[in-house]
């Protein structure tokens, strides 16, 4: 199982990084979403793989019978915050789209509107 989870984190993180480096804002948002998932899974994996040991206290069970609750609490808030940040980035990209007329990350490639860097990185 550990290998499956580690490889899942690797694929999620790698895909996230790849998408974050794309030219269009929407791809970057998708990339951030994948990265967030990868990081959440990574954080949770700090509590080790322990199926069937949910941290809900029952009478007469030893402490060792529960999985570490702390990463879960951290990840829970991280999911919610991740959503908030993602919503913010989405709206930011929409606003940029309105202002610059393009959804290119650097602004003003196909729009040719004022501001923005000509051609983004490739043409530098």
């Amino acid at each position: 199982m550990e290998a499956l989870i580690a490889s899942a984190i690797a694929v999620l993180g790698g895909s996230g990084i790849y998408l974050v480096l794309r030219e269009r804002t929407f791809s970057v948002i998708l990339g951030l979403a994948l990265l967030a998932i990868a990081v959440n899974l990574f954080l949770l994996s700090m509590g080790r793989v322990a199926p069937g040991q949910a941290p809900v206290i029952e009478e007469g069970l030893e402490l060792a019978a529960y999985v570490d609750p702390l990463p879960q609490a951290v990840v829970l808030t991280a999911i919610v915050i991740g959503f908030a940040m993602m919503a913010f980035v989405v709206v930011l990209s929409i606003s940029t789209h309105f202002v610059t007329g393009t959804d290119h990350v650097d602004g003003g490639v196909d729009g040719g509107v004022d501001g923005g860097v000509d051609g983004g990185e490739d043409t530098q």
Binding site: E2, I9, V11, G13, S15
Partner: peptide, 12 residues
């Protein structure tokens, strides 16, 4: 990605 996977593997 490999780095992230490797670190989590090492921890787990």
């Amino acid at each position: 990605g490999l780095g992230m996977g490797a670190i989590s593997w090492a921890v787990m």
